[in-house]
Design a protein around this nucleic acid. Structure first.
Lengths: 197, 197
DNA sequence: AACTATAAAGAACGTTCGTTCTGCTGTCAA
DNA sequence: TTGACAGCAGAACGAACGTTCTTTATAGTT
């Protein structure tokens, strides 16, 4: 039996890219095209090695399916110095699945696109997607989606003279001191930004 | 032709549950068991209706695959005003998959945790996870992971007197004018931040 | 130059798959 | 009470699929 090698890594990358497009692992015949291999038997040998490396597995029906590791992205930690440049370790650290990191309770999580710039000093820009966990309680200092006078707003929760206030992270905007009830819609648990390609 | 009905919703739920477990859509024969239907032809009729409702579709090979709607995470767009509060619409907008939004080419994508605060004015904080697409070319204005004198750094790519320079987004840090070669490791295509729970 | 292991191709074959067509059963309106 | 149709079952069939076995090409070693 042969081992998982560099070429198999290329095959894995091609399979991951195909899967990103089509969300399934196709027949051996189609994988011949995807991998650039002419024989089905060799495609199977590749898949067996990928499964031994725990990137794919089989259903009871014999269909190939991806494992968790298949979706994980390499994550280089403690590597990029945004202050002063620092050497990167070529070794790939642990793996990382974005959805899993950001969303712990899918049924309570909503994504909301941010409008305006009142939280810009907190690094939250217009167009960013806020990951919000719906719940009615929050702690002082949390960034919350609050319902003030039947309207929603994204602000930092704070307290002043025993009353809750909503503090923007932009000096151009005023602190909100709710007159009526202050209801919490949810708490900001994550943020996602996409840069133009 | 018949329409999508309540029973089809049950079939859809069963299919979603199966897919969550096995990450593929199996053969008609297996779907007979999953749906509790005895005939393959009727299973096919169900799938055709699910595809007409845009929950699944077919690859050029004829394989059934899920659509974006199949995974359905609600995404409320244009709703939260970070400037002045604005009414939220209870309607759920389009659907949204974080991984898919941020990662177009899995094999070329790496995640890197940001250190330091030299890009803080661009809303990139220490501890944020940068989504980096590995490639050697970039455009002026892109935020890049550059290799300067064998070291990595995250900066905005700019040009000055015909030479490339790396501009931090923090006045406390100097502009980097590479003496040796300027090599691009990759381009910042996304950013992910997780707030403490 | 011969040997060996590995990488890949190719052929053969039984099974399974998707498709299509026909048949059955219950329901509802005329 | 008959017709019509929707919901579903079952059979038939050719094409595609996965598996296994055999063969060829390439590279490295002795």
């Amino acid at each position: 039996m042969t081992e998982f090698n560099i070429k198999d890594t290329e095959y894995l990358n091609k399979l991951q890219d195909y899967y990103a497009d089509w969300k399934n692992i196709p027949s051996y015949a189609r994988l011949c095209e995807v991998f650039g291999i002419a024989s089905k038997s060799w495609v199977k040998a590749v898949l067996v090695r990928l499964s031994e490396a725990d990137f794919i597995e089989r259903t009871p029906d014999g269909a190939w399916i991806p494992t968790r590791q298949f979706f994980a992205r390499p994550h280089a930690e403690s590597t990029v110095q945004a202050g002063m440049p620092v050497a990167i370790s070529a070794t790939q650290g642990d793996f990382f699945i974005i959805d899993e990191m950001l969303i712990e309770t899918p049924s309570k999580t909503t994504l909301i696109t941010v409008k305006g710039d009142s939280m810009i000093d907190a690094g939250i820009h217009e167009g960013d997607v806020a990951v919000v966990e719906k719940r009615m309680t929050a702690n002082i200092g949390d960034i919350v989606i609050a319902i003030v006078d039947d309207e929603f707003t994204l602000k930092t929760l704070d307290r002043e003279n025993g009353a809750f206030i909503l503090r923007p992270a932009n000096p151009a905007y005023p602190v909100i001191r709710p007159q009526g009830t202050l209801e919490i819609f949810g708490v900001l648990t994550g943020l996602v930004r996409k840069y133009r390609k």
